[in-house]
Amino acid sequence: MTETTGTFAVKKGLAQMLKGGVIMDVVTAEHARIAEDAGACAVMALERVPADIRADGGVARMSDPELILKIMDTVSIPVMAKCRIGHFVEAQILEALGVDYIDESEVLTPADESHHIYKHDFKVPFVCGCRNLGEALRRIGEGAAMIRTKGEAGTGDVVEAVRHARTVLGEIRHLQIMPVEELMTYAKNIGAPFELVMEVHKTGKLPVVNFAAGGIATPADAALMMQLGVDGVFVGSGIFKSGDPAKRAAAIVKSVTHYNEPKILAEISRNLGEPMVGRQISTLPDNELMAERGW
């Protein structure tokens, strides 16, 4: 019997196991433990949460491998880590460390202003951000095995997450009812591989799992994204920049399971302490918008 590793089914398969779950940003092993105890289905190991990256400025890079390894030693759930857009050597290093998923992320400073990583070359799966269907299908074409809508990380303002989820899901619905003769021009216009456009036209969904990210700070935010139709959520600064991270983390996990039950959502939203201090996206200067990064 031959055992084949690194197949697309295996890469995409892990994302399927994460569905209906919450992936939490953690910056220390202690955070990772709190996230796992709260019911996170995976953690994202990084040095600074997006809110701090935003506040500190400067170049944001892949985290110190030492930190990532400590977090991998601490928890039994999957550990993800971020590399810069286009920085395939950071990705090689993360793969060598044995992380379970790589996020080629706009939250870090891009290393390449024209190209993303060719992700099919890796055994480790990748998740990538998108704002629209064209961007999602370009990333899948490059080998991403999971997609997340970008939102605007580190703001605690869910408006961009909603915009991006509505855009992607709306474009899919529109594509589904298009006559076939319009698909090639549509593929050209959105800059997406024709075969993937054809596939989405037939199936009515992305070929990989699609999470929401960027600005989710409360159980209600998470449930909102789930009701809009995503498969799960990433929560970055929203947990560990809040008053009571353990409690808020557990509540957001529950809200993603019971996203359609307002009575349960009401119960779990009680007494969570201070949410993260948000930054309204409409007040941010254009050069501070992370979601614009990606080609």
């Binding site: 019997m1 031959t2 039994s76 379970d100």
Partner: peptide, 29 residues
């Protein structure tokens, strides 16, 4: 961890083949 339902007489070890890079497909008899 995690607590088991304790209904089947089997012992099971989590993540026994390694991490995600060791995940695989195989034709099983």
């Amino acid at each position: 961890n995690p607590p088991r339902l304790d209904v089947m007489d089997i012992h099971i070890v989590r993540n026994a083949f390694g991490r995600q890079v060791d995940s695989f497909q195989a034709d099983l008899l």
